[in-house]
């Protein structure tokens, strides 16, 4: 660690604070907007599919960019989730299996072998 560890360059700090400002804007902006207007049933129906739609929109390309190890691990998470409904189990199983599947795919064998 250099003695510059605590240095704060004013222009760097300015960019960071601008980044923080636009991020806060995005985080509060959506709910601010929908709090301003009275939502009709129709709009509310649209809003109600948002959580799942966002999850799928985020997940789809992410998994598509992965390979068989990620797909298999995703299937493990899904399976464990369905059986146990315990998110912690599902996450642990997913992470362990992605490491194992990647090792398999790389041809190095299972780490535990």
């Amino acid at each position: 660690m250099t003695d510059g560890a605590l240095s704060l360059d004013p222009s760097v700090v300015a960019v960071i604070l601008a980044m923080a400002a636009v991020t806060v804007l995005t985080k509060v902006g959506g709910i601010w907007l929908v709090r301003q207007v009275e939502l009709g049933d129709r709009l509310e129906a649209g809003l109600s599919v948002l959580p799942g739609a966002i999850v799928i929109a985020l997940l789809g390309p992410e998994l598509a960019a992965g390979g068989p190890p990620e797909w298999a691990a995703a299937a493990v998470v899904l399976g464990v989730m369905w059986r146990t409904e315990n998110i912690l189990f599902a996450l642990c199983a997913g992470v362990l299996s992605v490491v194992a599947f990647r090792a398999l795919a790389a041809g190095t064998g299972l780490p535990i072998a």
Binding site: G52, G66, V77, L91, V95, V99, R102
Partner: peptide, 26 residues
């Protein structure tokens, strides 16, 4: 990626998708 940390976000979202599924309407 060595410890599979990069997969945690995807795993959280897969788990969430499993719970958000409401049948055909979804």
């Amino acid at each position: 990626t060595r410890y599979g940390f990069d997969f945690i976000l995807a795993a959280v979202f897969v788990a969430l998708a499993a719970e958000l599924w409401e049948g055909r309407s979804t």
